[in-house]
Simulated scan of single mutants.
Amino acid sequence: MKDLDSIINAVDIPGFIKNSIEKWTIEKNTPSFMYLLPDYGYIEPTIGQPFFLVVDKITSTGILIFRETPEWEQFKLDMIYDSE
């Protein structure tokens, strides 16, 4: 798998999020996907918060997925987010 920093930097993360992110915490790690939750300070309220970075370990790509989106349901992220 590609270096995690490279994957995070390659993902199209909105500037107001990227500027506030200090680090990413791995919430769940499966053979196919790694689910990362950002530790952040002050982020402007947006529709769909919270969000995860989902890294596809096969293709070494990542996608930022916001709550209340079809992708959130597709990846069943409520199970990961609500398990905290």
Rank of each mutant, 00 (worst) to 15 (best):
S83Q: 08
W24L: 10
I47T: 07
M1E: 14
P50M: 05
N9A: 12
T30D: 13
F33R: 14
K28G: 00
G41I: 02
T61V: 03
E44W: 03
L53G: 03
I13T: 13
M1I: 09
G15V: 00
T61K: 15
L77E: 06
T61L: 04
L53N: 02
D82V: 04
F51M: 10
S60M: 05
E73V: 07
I47V: 06
I43F: 01
I43C: 06
K76C: 10
K23W: 04
L64K: 08
I43G: 05
I63G: 01
L37P: 00
V11Y: 04
M1L: 12
Q49K: 06
M79V: 13
E68H: 10
E22P: 00
F66Q: 08
F33N: 15
S60I: 01
Q74H: 12
L37Y: 12
F75A: 04
K18S: 12
I63W: 00
E27I: 00
V55A: 03
F52I: 01
L36T: 02
F75W: 11
Q74G: 00
W24S: 07
S20K: 08
E44N: 10
T46K: 08
L77T: 03
D3K: 15
I63E: 15
I65C: 05
F33D: 11
V54F: 02
I63L: 05
T59G: 05
I7L: 11
I65S: 04
I8K: 13
L4K: 15
G48L: 01
S20W: 00
P50D: 01
E27S: 12
S32D: 15
L4N: 12
E68C: 01
S20L: 02
T69P: 08
L64F: 02
I47Q: 09
L37M: 10
E27F: 09
I17D: 11
S20G: 14
W24R: 08
I43A: 11
T30V: 09
I80N: 03
N29V: 00
I43T: 05
D3M: 14
E22W: 04
I58A: 13
D3L: 15
Q49A: 11
I26M: 11
E84R: 13
F66L: 08
I47N: 10
F66H: 10
T69D: 05
Q74V: 01
K28L: 12
I63P: 00
G41Y: 04
F16L: 12
F51Y: 08
V54H: 02
P45H: 04
Q74Y: 11
L37I: 00
P31H: 13
E71S: 11
I26W: 03
I26T: 15
L77N: 06
T30Y: 13
S32L: 14
M34V: 06
I17W: 06
I26K: 06
P50S: 05
D3A: 15
P45W: 02
G15K: 07
R67S: 14
Y81H: 11
Y42Q: 12
V54E: 01
I13Y: 02
S60A: 13
E22C: 07
D5Q: 15
W72D: 08
M1G: 15
L64R: 08
D39F: 07
Y40C: 10
I43N: 04
R67L: 00
T61W: 06
Q74M: 08
G15D: 09
R67Y: 02
V11R: 09
I26R: 07
P31E: 14
